[in-house]
Nucleic acid binder design. Structure first.
Length: 257
DNA sequence: AACATTTGACCCAG
DNA sequence: CTGGGTCAAATGTT
């Protein structure tokens, strides 16, 4: 067997492993497993990604990323000077990876790039802290959709925010994970409840795990609202389904009658 | 007007 | 040479 064939086969196996781990991670999140277990699953995914990248590096490396050609087209041939050097400030070692259903982590981010990535169905988004210039904050993050579950994001953080960076604590409540907390993320015009994992009785789920996500709400703007309630529980998938297409007003009434 | 996003171009590491 | 990360002009939104 040629080296390239073996690399390809290994990539395939690793892709399966990654998918399975992503499913495991989603399951852990849905069942309220402790953060340590979830972190472990995230680390496994991270390791698999690095292994795949290493194997690919040894392979033939064909194909070209051309952006994704959404083509607004017609831009003047930006033929002038551009850009100064970049890359590799040594901070990559301090990256941390998070799989989350919440895009909004409470900090203000500004998107500065989007790129199709080889072997990824979805493009990767690049964000930097909104206050980079004002406060000299060097925090950045990269966001990939998890292919198996588009409502989940694989977020890699680089650098730290400065203490002066404003933070919206309400938006980060989901990350607390304590008590009977229901997290609702809703997009004003496309609210979609997210049902429990197949085969799981929602009645057996802690209230903190009844979660809704705005399935494809992107980019995160103020159109997206993050609401937190402490004592709401829906017992059946039917009840969840009935919330489909609910308006924000109705949702507020439901949560805070 | 000010700020945020989009997206092709550019740069660099491997 | 290629893939991935970033820049920055054009465009959109508030």
């Amino acid at each position: 067997m040629a080296t390239a064939d073996r690399a390809s086969a290994a990539c395939g196996v690793m892709a399966e492993a990654r998918e399975a781990t992503a499913r495991l991670l989603a399951l852990l999140q849905a069942t309220g497993a402790d953060p340590g277990k979830r972190e472990l699953a995230e680390q496994i995914i991270c390791c698999i990604d690095r292994a795949r990248a290493a194997v690919r590096g040894a392979g033939d490396g064909t194909g070209k990323t051309t952006g994704h050609g959404f083509g607004l087209g017609a831009r003047p041939p930006a033929g002038s000077k551009r850009r100064r050097a970049r890359r590799g400030c040594g901070e990559e070692a301090r990256a941390r990876v998070v799989a989350s259903s919440a895009m909004d982590d409470g900090y203000a981010w500004r998107k500065y790039g989007e790129k199709s990535i080889q072997d990824h169905k979805n493009p990767r988004f690049y964000f930097r802290c909104t206050y980079r210039d004002e406060l000299g904050c060097g925090a950045r993050k990269q966001v990939d959709r998890i292919e198996d579950d588009p409502s989940l994001f694989h977020i890699t953080y680089f650098g730290e925010h400065t203490p002066a960076c404003p933070r919206d604590d309400a938006a980060t409540a989901e990350l607390d994970g304590d008590g009977r907390r229901l997290v609702v993320q809703a997009c004003l015009d496309s609210f979609r409840p997210c049902l429990p994992p197949e085969g799981q009785d929602p009645k057996q789920m802690p209230a903190s795990m009844v979660e809704f996500t705005a399935g494809y709400c992107w980019p995160p703007t103020d159109q997206m609202a993050n609401l937190v309630s402490s004592d709401v529980c829906f017992g059946t998938p039917g009840e969840l389904e009935s919330l489909d297409a609910i308006s924000m007003e109705e949702l507020m009434d439901l949560l805070w009658p």
